[in-house]
Design a protein around this nucleic acid. Structure first.
Lengths: 131, 131
DNA sequence: TAAACCGTACTATGCGAATAATACAGTCGC
DNA sequence: GCGACTGTATTATTCGCATAGTACGGTTTA
């Protein structure tokens, strides 16, 4: 069963996108394997404290991207292939790195400064991680 | 006069926040100096192709943060102090670095992999820069 | 088979962002 | 002083996100 315990909803971004992102992170980190079952729409919405329609919207998006498969009437389950893992990894890590690098360059940072900054905040980012 | 030529509006984020971000980037990169005049709300809204109220909302936010000063009836101008530059720099670069580092760690990357990824996308981010 | 669960769809409502169209008062240059 | 500009405020409308409630048909399982 796919876990949504670590999902902390934040405002400023659509909830259904945060749910999609949580699944993609799980796929990339290996927490979600091929064939893993999703909680039902109703149960997941109760767990997250959001509306079932919001969960359904996220599931619809996930199915359109091929990350889950839904048989009307039965539980949905994850579809994880090496191609999907690679696609999610590229989207999540590399996409974020590119946008940050572009921003840093636009702000006048050099490569060495950027690398040093990452080194600094890397240790900082260790604090506050869940056990 | 503060330039907004390089501002390319994207959907998915409130326009007024993008305007605020553009000004902060200009302050950090040195493109905006203390006392620089802003285009009028009406002219800027025409240039960006958005509603004057949206520009006004951005200007209101900028004034509340102390980045611009507005005398009712006269042109607004930028207020750039070393403290403001430091604050903007911290908010823009370090904030982005922290969030990306946290995401990369959550995805199972190590520091060395993260640094290597930044090195890769750094060259990639050079392409597509405006002259 | 029948109850309990599942995915899916639909309409209605509230809210914030953005748009649109004004209106008013203060400042500047002639 | 006067006209052209400025910042500021107001109301109404549209759109996407989230909520709320309900309904239908398929699947599972006891």
């Amino acid at each position: 069963m796919i876990s949504f315990e670590g999902l902390r909803l934040e405002e400023g971004q659509p909830i259904y996108q945060q749910i999609v992102l949580h699944v993609k992170r799980g796929v990339v980190s290996g927490a979600i394997a091929d064939g893993d079952e999703l909680p039902s729409r109703r149960i997941l919405s109760a767990v997250l404290g959001v509306n079932p329609n919001t969960v359904q919207k996220a599931c619809r998006a996930l199915e359109e991207e091929g990350l889950i498969a839904s048989h009307a009437g039965a539980r949905s389950f994850a579809v994880v292939t090496p191609e999907i893992i690679a696609a999610c990894r590229a989207e999540l890590v590399r996409g974020g790195a590119e946008s940050w690098a572009r921003a840093a360059r636009g702000l006048g940072l050099g490569l060495d400064e950027a690398l040093e900054l990452i080194r600094e905040v890397w240790d900082c980012s260790k604090e506050g991680e869940e056990p």
